[in-house]
Design a protein around this nucleic acid. Sequence first.
DNA 1: TTAGCCAAAAATATCGAAATATTATTGACT
DNA 2: AGTCAATAATATTTCGATATTTTTGGCTAA
Lengths: 237, 237
Amino acid sequence: MGTIGSGSQRRLPKTAPARSLVEATFETLRHDIMDGSLTPGSKLRFEMLRDRYEVGASTLREALTRLVGESLVTSEEQRGFRVAEISLADLEDLTRTRKLVEIEALRQSIEAGDEIWEAELVAAFHRLSKVEAQLADDPAHRQDEFEVRNREFHQALIAACPSRSLKQIQGIIYQQLERYRRISLSDHVVPRDIHGEHRRVMDAALTRDADLACRLEAEHIDLTLEVVSKILAEDGR
Amino acid sequence: MGTIGSGSQRRLPKTAPARSLVEATFETLRHDIMDGSLTPGSKLRFEMLRDRYEVGASTLREALTRLVGESLVTSEEQRGFRVAEISLADLEDLTRTRKLVEIEALRQSIEAGDEIWEAELVAAFHRLSKVEAQLADDPAHRQDEFEVRNREFHQALIAACPSRSLKQIQGIIYQQLERYRRISLSDHVVPRDIHGEHRRVMDAALTRDADLACRLEAEHIDLTLEVVSKILAEDGR
DNA sequence: TTAGCCAAAAATATCGAAATATTATTGACT
DNA sequence: AGTCAATAATATTTCGATATTTTTGGCTAA
């Protein structure tokens, strides 16, 4: 039985500090939900999941329960689990809440950030820029890496926010919206100066112009909503 | 094996909606953590929990995993579960975030609330008032009921807020702070006009004076922080 | 002493079978 | 045909045994 990493078989995505089987299953499941391989609303049957991930029933349940806590999965008493549905209304709602939470976190972060925060932010921006350049050539293959870097950049922006609870909430909301982006943008190329948007937010943050940075970040978030909701409404069905 | 309360009869769909063992264990555990029977920071060993709640290992793990998602329990890889610690810093952080989230939800609720919302709010206030009166006589015994009514009142205030995600977040934050209150106030009687505070917030909400209601609610939350943090700092150790 | 090592003890993590619940199917009766 | 109960087929939930990991407690050597 046992865990992963020290012994013999089973490879996982990339970073390998995933130690327990529950953890590994959780992460794989989450990844499959995030990129749409497990489509919104679809039933998550145990037999199917056991075959797919090769773990026991209770390990699966525990991983699924964690995903319910992150609102990526829903469960109905005695009726199993499903991938959480997506909807235009939910997308709009999440976006509004993201703005409230993330803008406040950004303000606090700019207020409290030190030189180390600045340096990490610049580094995250640089890494993101690299992927952005490659994204134009090979969208399908780089989408995953882009979203990782994108998340790291937005996380870096608010990293200096001293509020543990605010950052935790931001993470949950952000992740739900990331799924919307990945699912809708995976087969659409949208002409948009994301690089410029990010740079302007970062510059304002580094200048400690909190008002400007927050305004720009809000606009950035709104623009994303516009793009994603349009795609969702179009090929929504 | 199986579920609770559904053995033969399926009546009472309101109070007993065919709960699974995980659900029941989760709720009992949560209650025991909320009222401090399971003290902050204490280790949650499986043998102890199996004896106490009479369920199998994986059922326990699933219930505990849900509590991790609500930040009432922490888990460390291969090292089991603990009741989440409490601290002054965390109390202050949660309070700040509660204000941000709950005040915004209140504003939206006042904006969108209809007559049914008004009626439910008045009813919740009335039920809370009843318990408040009894609280003076028998603090120890009524504490639990008071906190239930108190939560229902604050929930009723923001019930008309159309944002699913905002209300969900509010619930999580509120619950964490409720634990702080229950633990610290359980053996302290604080002279305070809670009834008046609640009434003024409600009146402002019913008058649709959002600014006033939000200001009063914020003051109410701050006052609670003052009281609880004082107690926590005093007999904190 | 103190650090390092090994085995025993204790605790956690996992599996897979068994129990229970839900859903689909059949067939009798109106 | 249509309803309904009984039953079969599926799916989920739970338990308890077993594997794995962490912790403990000597024991030895520097």
